[in-house]
Write a protein that binds this DNA or RNA. Structure first.
Lengths: 347, 347
DNA sequence: TTGTATGCGTTATCAG
DNA sequence: CTGATAACGCATACAA
């Protein structure tokens, strides 16, 4: 089974290669009958054009790349689906690319750009401030999704859309304070995090401050390294927190997965959520509502964010409009894991 | 910022393009100093070779594609990591490609093959019997992982590695029977499923039969359509089961996500797991052990499976060895969701 | 050890 | 409307 090329098809059809090319690419000036005939032959022979050659030659690609950092983040699969749909509607095509935690997402994008002639790039997750300047090396317009870069100048070289992590985090911790909690721990990213982890921590500080609660640094539990927001990590960190001997009445974990792990850790110490310790998460993934107790969390409007991100990208690509920064509002979903059915309700 | 090519680098270095090419591709016959100098220039200029051109020219690619069907399956992210590591060790490179539920995985592979000159293909998940014959159209060796195709002939055109779904499913249901359960429901794939769903259902039948329990078809709950093994789906199906009025003492869901949804549905009806209804899952994903109650399940040895799959692929690629079918044993993890602490223990 | 020339499969240009 | 032909960026055979 030899590799079949456009030349073979041309020969089989008794036409020139350019005619075949025109047929495949929906060019306007071609005889409909000729086109039909060519398409038939193509189908019969299972011919698939070589994309490498295409990308090599093409000037105007319609490829939009989506770089995902952290596959395991269940948030992203939904978003990818939405993005693909939006991109499809506009007759562009999407290429998803998985970036490992230790890889540099911009570097990966750079390679993809070389390879696919991208006309647009969407980053899902990731992004430390380090890679910030290197973003400028990308020629295609960039939209950052959920990858917090708070500072945003006029004439930015990229767009960004996400929730306001500080505000949402504040919302959650403020809610916990109003529930009467004074000893609120937080399970957060690494100490050097410059991404959403930092922002959510800032929101935590702010809420405590405005509620006149002194920060107990022993209740701020940082991850050791790596950007692994897993349940196992949540379990481990919560266990350490519990064994520290500090008084804790509530825990805010900066992701739902961490929160689930924390719940189980509390359970395994013979304590109850929320009776002994209330737990709150962040993200609004499926498991949060199916867990027992169901998890209080900030629901990020992922579909809307994804939709807006692609919209902004198209605006920049087609209308050359300016890059923008858009914030979405998260929803504080109060559920069983913070329900206030203990002594607090008695005062 | 113009696109920079190998020619530019050659000019900058004052050498020919082939020398640059040799430097990049670790060719043996090149002056080490020249090579060093070239590599420096390349780095300084952030030059990235155009992969399309490379793939176009190359005869012997070292690209192995991993086609994943069902991103949301948390099982796969771990496997991908293992596979990448193994592939990296052998100095090959991996390209992951996401296949949507409605897409044909073989079609996707075919395109990738044209584009990347693949020397090997690994399929993760998916695979209905429909696409079976079309597998032969792929020129590169194929390994199916976790994508059950029970029938396996000598001289097969592909390899396959997975757990024996029938046996594992049998193991679980048999365990439930031995626990004294007689009214065991199953939450399974669509009625027309020809993949793991069917196999796991067969194991269920077999276990009931061998335990002399008549099958109550009303306890066999099929999904409606689509291959969505989500918690929401599990919740919905379990609710229907509960509202059917049938007597149920245990439920076996063919995936952990479905099982979690089922647990919550039971909870929301005011019943308890496992006291009123025992629940068992399949897969062994993280959440299974962190859920409350922790979930009895079949743990698939994903790392081992992934490792073996790549090993087999390399054997076929390099040693031209025959395709093989390898089964791994799953581990029955008995946990809280089926703990036998009610009347059963009294007889 | 190095440089030059050719071709990979496709699309774009331009002449019919 | 169609066909020949020149790029696209790179790797490689071959010549030096």
């Amino acid at each position: 089974m030899e590799t079949i090329t456009i030349k073979d098809i041309a020969k089989l059809c008794g036409v020139g290669v350019s005619t075949v090319s025109r047929a495949m690419n929906d060019h306007p000036d071609i005889n409909p009958e000729t086109k039909q005939m060519i398409m038939d032959v193509i189908r019969e022979n299972n011919y698939i054009p070589n994309n490498s050659a295409r990308n090599l030659k093409r000037t105007d690609s319609k490829n939009i790349a989506v770089l995902v950092k952290g596959v395991d983040n269940p948030l992203f699969s939904r978003m990818i689906r939405v993005i693909e749909e939006e991109i499809g509607k506009k007759k562009y095509s999407m290429v998803v690319h998985q970036v490992e935690y230790y890889e540099d997402e911009v570097e990966a994008a750079l390679e993809l750009e070389q390879e696919k002639r991208l006309c647009g790039i969407i980053f899902l997750g990731g992004f430390y401030s380090e890679s910030s300047e290197s973003l400028a090396r990308l020629k295609a317009p960039v939209v950052l999704v959920t990858s917090a870069k708070p500072q945003f100048e006029q004439n930015s070289t990229y767009s960004a859309v996400s929730v306001d992590d500080i505000r949402e985090s504040y919302k959650m911790v403020d809610y916990l304070c109003r529930q009467g909690h004074k000893d609120i721990a937080i399970i957060t990213a690494t100490m050097h995090d410059e991404s959403v982890g930092k922002l959510r921590l800032l929101g935590y500080y702010k809420a405590l401050q405005e509620n006149n609660i002194n920060v107990n640094e022993k209740l701020v539990k940082y991850m050791d390294e790596g950007e692994d927001y897993s349940m196992g990590r949540g379990y481990q960190l919560m266990t350490e927190l519990l064994e520290s001997g500090e008084k804790i009445s509530a825990v805010f974990a900066i992701s739902d997965s961490l929160a689930i792990g924390a719940c189980r850790a509390i359970h395994d110490k013979g304590l109850q959520v929320p009776e002994d310790i209330a737990v709150a998460g962040f993200d609004g993934i499926d498991i949060a509502s199916y867990y027992s107790p169901s998890l209080t969390t900030i629901i990020q409007p992922m579909e809307a964010i994804a939709k807006e991100a692609t919209q902004i990208l198209f605006n920049v690509i087609r209308d050359k409009s300016m890059h923008t920064r858009k914030f979405f509002e998260g929803e504080l979903a109060v559920r069983e894991s913070t329900e206030n059915n203990k002594e607090n309700s008695a005062d």
